[in-house]
Amino acid sequence: MKRVTLVMPLALVTVLAAPVAALAGSEDVEIENAWARASISTSRPGAAYLTVRNTGDVAVTLTGLATPLAMMPEIHETTVTAEGISSMAPAGEITIQAGETVALEPGGLHAMLMGLQSPMTEGDSFPLTLTFSDGGDVTVDVPILGIAARGPEG
C-alpha cells in the first residue's frame, strides 16, 4: 500500500508536468507573417500576430516574449463561447510539435503588448523576440499596419 500511495501521485505529477518538459530545437523555428495594428497612444495595449513554424523533429515550447516596445509583452488567448461571448486570458507556455505551425492571429492567440514605451505608428516596425524553453530565442521584425488592418497584407 505504501508503495502504491507513493507511485500514484508520482505518476500523476509526471503526467501533468510532461508538456513542460524542455526539448531542444528552437534553432528550427521559423517566424512568418508577422504584423501588428497601429495603437492608440501608449495608454492602451497593442497586439501583434505571427505564425511560428517548427521545422525540426522535436517539439519546442514558446515560453515568453521580449521587445523594447513594451514593458510587458505576453501571449494572450481570446476565446469565444458558443454564445458569442469573448474574453481574453494569458495563454501560458505554448508547445509546438515537430513539423507543426502555431498561428497567432486575430481572435485567437496574440502577442499582447502592455506598457507601450512609444505609440505604435503605421509604417514603423519593431523587433519582437520569442524565447523558448531550450534557452534559444528568435527575433523577428514586426511591421505596424493601419489600425483597421485585417491581416499581414493590410
Binding site: 495594428r37 495603437s39 492608440i40 495595449p45 494572450h76 469573448s86 481574453m88 486575430p106 483597421a148 485585417r150
Partner: peptide, 17 residues
C-alpha cells in the same frame, strides 16, 4: 471596449471594410 487589443479592433476593421 477601447482597451481590447484583439477582438474589438478586429471586428471594427471588418465593419470598416
Amino acid at each position: 471596449f477601447a482597451n481590447c487589443p484583439d477582438v474589438c479592433p478586429t471586428t471594427l476593421s471588418e465593419v470598416a471594410a
